[in-house]
Design a protein around this nucleic acid. Sequence first.
DNA 1: GGTCACTTGGCAATCGATTGCCAGGATCAC
DNA 2: GTGATCCTGGCAATCGATTGCCAAGTGACC
Lengths: 346, 346
Amino acid sequence: MARRPTIRDVAARAGVHPATASRALNPALPGRIAEATAARVRAAARDLGYTPDPAARSLRTRRSGVVGVVVPDLTNPVLPPIVRGVEETLWPAGLACLVADTDNDPEREASAVAELAARRCDGLIVASATRDSATVRALATGDVATVLVTRDVPGAGLSFVGGDDAAGVRAAVRHVAELGHERIGYVAGPADLSTTRTRLDALHAAVAAAPACARPVVRHARAYTVAAGRAAARRLLAADGAVSAILAGNDMLALGVYEALADAGLRCPAEISVVGHNDMPMVDKLEPPLTTVAIPQYEIGIAAARLLMDRLGRDRPAERRLLPTRLVVRRSTAPPPVTARAGLSR
Amino acid sequence: MARRPTIRDVAARAGVHPATASRALNPALPGRIAEATAARVRAAARDLGYTPDPAARSLRTRRSGVVGVVVPDLTNPVLPPIVRGVEETLWPAGLACLVADTDNDPEREASAVAELAARRCDGLIVASATRDSATVRALATGDVATVLVTRDVPGAGLSFVGGDDAAGVRAAVRHVAELGHERIGYVAGPADLSTTRTRLDALHAAVAAAPACARPVVRHARAYTVAAGRAAARRLLAADGAVSAILAGNDMLALGVYEALADAGLRCPAEISVVGHNDMPMVDKLEPPLTTVAIPQYEIGIAAARLLMDRLGRDRPAERRLLPTRLVVRRSTAPPPVTARAGLSR
DNA sequence: GGTCACTTGGCAATCGATTGCCAGGATCAC
DNA sequence: GTGATCCTGGCAATCGATTGCCAAGTGACC
C-alpha cells in the first residue's frame, strides 16, 4: 500500500535534489530558490499530497510546533472560552494544543507539566497555578516559554494574562454602595489562589474607600464550588446577621450564596443583594439573574496565546497583561431593605 | 548550557551500548536485557533525568503517541466532560490529546482533520460530525483509527460512542404521557445531525406507542442554540395552540422554549410542561428546574478513548456503543391544566 | 577578456531512538 | 569433549527533513 510521500519523492518528481525541494517549500527562505524551480516543486508536492513529517522536522529543528495547555478543570465554565481563544490563535500559526487537565490537584499538575516537557512542547500555557506552586515556579528558570492565565504566581517572574479583577471588584463595591448598602459581606475563594487574593485585596480597598461602609465581613470558602460557597455563606450570615449585600469570589460561590440565602429564608434581592464574579454562562437565567463581574475569557485566551508566540524563540522579559472587566448589573442587586435588619444589630 | 541528555549519555554512564540502553528502558522487552544491566541503565537514566525525545522515537517507530480530538464547540457545556473523560483515559496510556475546535463549521472541520492527519496522529476522536460529513466519511477508509462521539455518521462504518438517546426520549415521552399529556410538541435540532434524527425518530415511535397521544407537532430549530430554540418554539406554538407539553432536542433548545413560553405569557409547568435533553450544568437551577434526559458524558469520553486504544495497531471492526441515559425529573413537568386549553381546539 | 559577485542547487552530515542481525560467551546435554 | 542452544549485548542502518558548506553557472563591470 502507498506509503506517505516524502520530500525525496517530491524532489524526484520535480527533478531536483531533496535539499532544493525542502528549501523551495520553506516560505521563510524567499528567493533562495529560483521561482520557476520552486513552482515545480510546489506542484509536485501538491500532486503527491505531500505533507512534511513533523517528527522528522522537529527532530532536526528542535521545535515541536506543540504548545501544552494546563487547565485545572475543563468542566469549569470559565475555562472553555479561554481554551478556545488559545487554540484558535495558535492553530493559524502552525501550533497545536495539547490539553492536560489537573483536576486542581498539585500532583497531577506536576506530572502534567513533566509529561508536557517530556514531549518537548515549545511553550506552555498554565491556568492551574496555585500561588505557591513549586511546579510552576520551576518553569520560570526552565527553557520552555510559559504564560500563566487567570491564576498568577507572584514573584515567579512569569508572564501573566488575566482579567482586571481589581477594577471589577471596585465597580461591584461602588455599585452596591451606591444602592445604599453599608454592611457588605464577602465570600472569598481559597487563599492559595492569586485570584482570591487580588479580589479580596481590591474588596478591602474599595470598601475602605466608600465612606458610608463598615468593614466588610469576610469568610473563605474551601474551594470555588457551590457547596463550599454555601457553607461559607452560612458561616458569614451566622457571624453577622446585618449584612445586606454579599459579594462572592466567583459565580460558583455566588450560587452557593443563593442556596444559603434560601436556607436562611432570606429573599434576594429584596433582603440581601448578591454579586458574583466571572459571568459564567447561564447565570443570567438564574432566579434572580445574577449581577456579576464579566471577564473577557475568550480575549484572555487570545492574548495569552499571542504573548506566548511573542516569547517563542526570542528571550523576552516577562510581561503582565490585565484585560478590562465589566460589571453586569442584573436583578440580584437592589437597595437594602428599609425595615432595617441592619438596624437591629446597631 | 546543559543540553538534554540523550540515550547515548545514559548508555555511556551505564557503560553499555546505546542499543542496550534503549532495550533496557523498554518495558515491552522483558528479560531481553539482564536485570543487573537494566537496573544500571535505569539508574543512569534517573540520575541524568533522561526522557526520550518523542520526535526521534516517533520518527523511528512511526507512531506519534498523539490523538486528535475534534470538537464542534468546546463552549458547549456537553463537551468538556467528554473531553475530560477522553483525556484522563488517554494520558495514563501515554497518549496526549490535541484538541481542535471546529465551531460547527464543515470547512474548519476539514482543515482540522487535515492538520491533525499531517501531524501524524495515531488516532482521532471526532465529536463534530454531521450526518453527511465527507471529511469524516473519508476517515473510514484512511489509515488513522477513528472513533465518533455523540454524533454519528450513518453508514460510514466508523466506531461510535454515545448516549442511548432513544431510550432517553422514550422515558421522557412515557413521563409526560403518564402525567396525562396528550398533545405533545417537539422542538427538534438541525436535521443534519445524527442526534437530531435519533431523538426525533424515537419521539415519533414513543408517541405512537402511547395510546392516548395525538401525533406530535414537530418544528426544527436551525441550530442547537437558545435563539433557534426560541424561534422554533414560537412557530410550534403558533401552529398548534393546544400542545400541553414540549420536548426539546437538547437543553439549549429547552432554554429557548422557556423564553418562547415567557413571550407567550404561558407558565411552566402550570400551563405547559417542558423536557430537555443532556442535563447541562445549571439547568437544575433554572426557574423552574428543568426535567431533562441525562447522558453520561464523562463515561462516553472514557468509553471513546478505550475504544480508540483497542483499535490502535490492530485492525478491528467498527463498533457501536450506547451508554445508558436517565430521565431526571425536576419541576418543569406537571400534569396538564384541567381548564383545557387543549379543549378549545378539539 | 578577465575578475568578481551573486545566484542556484547539490552533497552530506545531523537530529536521537529503535531494531534486525550477528557474535561472543555461557550453559547444557549427550 | 563436542556440539547445540540460549542469553546478552554490540553494530550499524534507518526513519525524513533540514541546513552548512561548497561548486557550478550566470551576469556584470572594468
